[in-house]
Design a protein around this nucleic acid. Structure first.
Lengths: 241, 241
DNA sequence: CGTAGTTTTGAGGCTTATCAACAGCCGTGG
DNA sequence: CCACGGCTGTTGATAAGCCTCAAAACTACG
């Protein structure tokens, strides 16, 4: 078996062009230890990443210590969309992370010359936007327990969709590689509130923990009722289901 | 002077191709009255819009009556990014709205054949994503008064950037074409809390109202301090400044 | 001038944040 | 081996901020 090529290479597969070939040659596998930054705030947007393995938190920091995590990203997700010459956000490895870095210039050239590739890329970008909209709804409208339930569905969907070996069936086991603080900063809550929400879900036997970073969903309907897109006829194939 | 062509036509200007020309011929000017929907929940994504005039609210509705407004859109903004065959959201005219509708198929073809056009479009999409991230930060981390201050900066920046006749200087006068309920649903608050936040800002002489939908910023530094991206060295040219 | 809709203001209650203590887990070092 | 400190997570008590309910003020419009 050859070395892993990542999702970008996979996407490029149907859309060969010299510029895409060149882009792929420019990819370099990089490894990050827990706590290391893939991207720092203010850094130039010269590189972007295709994550192969591990989990990354993309966060925005306020100077007064406030922090909002914008997304958790894992295998087969792209990190580094930007319209400006400097990144406004911070990307931190929550686990050991393997990612391929590509020079943005090579990406831009590949996109500018290979329309089919650009189209796929645009779809990915649109999905990221839709996920951000889900996030806005969750934070803006849902209560603490609902947010936590919603978060479990988010992780579950992502673990299925962005599994290292490609999409697979959703399982009722959810890994939480992040700390309670990370979860709190993602959901706009405090660690205590997150902890209490988990406890409450445990007590009502909706979920159970093997340890604090590994959770089983015992009653998926109940979780969906709380955090799911009960909002719609949920056939849009997007997140949180 | 010719009829208005919209932002899309403007963007296409440097990137002529038969498919772009065709796309432009497919645009139809449409008018919407207050309360009319440009897009309804679940509707097929066959059309997308280039707004010429007026203000539109893009919202997601929960079945229990909860509603989250995802963005307010006005002249020179695009409505209708979607990765799926059905729109998950609802777009409602808050004022009289004039917009050009384009068939998505023609847009896709133009994007697929005209890389320069596709690149500009991708930048626009990325900006929308960054704006959604700002929104997540605001709702997740800021207090009620801060959210309202942030909202004023958001409107102010949008009114400058998306003025019908192209970008202009920011003014300290802000029009609020939406109701308090719309503002509340955008910020994840209630109408009462929004109203109280405005009152508080009035009392401290940070802003003043001509009437309830027209506001002057008296102390922009104070507003920036509360709601602005004091968070960063604010040179990323994005929203909320 | 009266009615309907929106906005503001007030009083009280609930959810979540804050502050604080404690429990569990691990690596280090005695 | 156990003792220790540091870190993360849980639980409890209290307080703050926002929501809910209610009513009054203002606006628009017939």
């Amino acid at each position: 078996m050859t070395t892993k090529l990542g999702h970008l290479a996979e996407m490029a597969d149907g859309h060969r062009s010299p510029e895409v070939e060149f882009l792929l040659t420019q990819g370099h596998e990089r490894h990050f230890k827990i706590g290391e930054h893939l991207i720092t705030e203010g850094e130039t947007t010269d590189y972007f990443y295709d994550i192969l393995d591990g989990t990354v938190a993309l966060a925005r920091n306020g100077r007064d210590g406030r922090r909002q995590i914008l997304s958790f990203m894992s295998a087969r997700q792209f990190l580094g969309a930007a319209s400006t010459p400097n990144y406004p956000n911070l990307a931190t490895a929550l686990t050991q992370v393997t990612a391929i870095s590509y020079p943005r210039s090579a990406l831009e050239k590949a996109l500018a010359t290979t329309p089919g590739f650009a189209s796929e890329f645009r779809v990915v970008l649109t999905r990221i936007l839709e996920s951000a909209h889900d996030h806005v709804y969750t934070i803006g409208q849902r209560s603490a327990v609902e947010r936590v339930a919603s978060f479990l569905l988010y992780l579950r969907a992502n673990q299925a969709r962005f599994s290292p070996d490609g999409p697979r069936e959703k399982s009722n086991h959810v890994e939480l590689p992040m700390t309670r603080l990370d979860i709190a900063d993602f959901l706009g809550l405090t660690i205590e509130t997150v902890s209490r929400a988990f406890s409450s879900l445990k007590k009502s036997e909706v979920i159970s923990f093997k340890d604090s970073h590994s959770c089983d969903i015992l009653n998926i309907d109940r979780v969906r009722n709380l955090g799911g897109r009960d909002d719609f006829t949920d056939n849009r194939g997007s997140s949180y289901d």
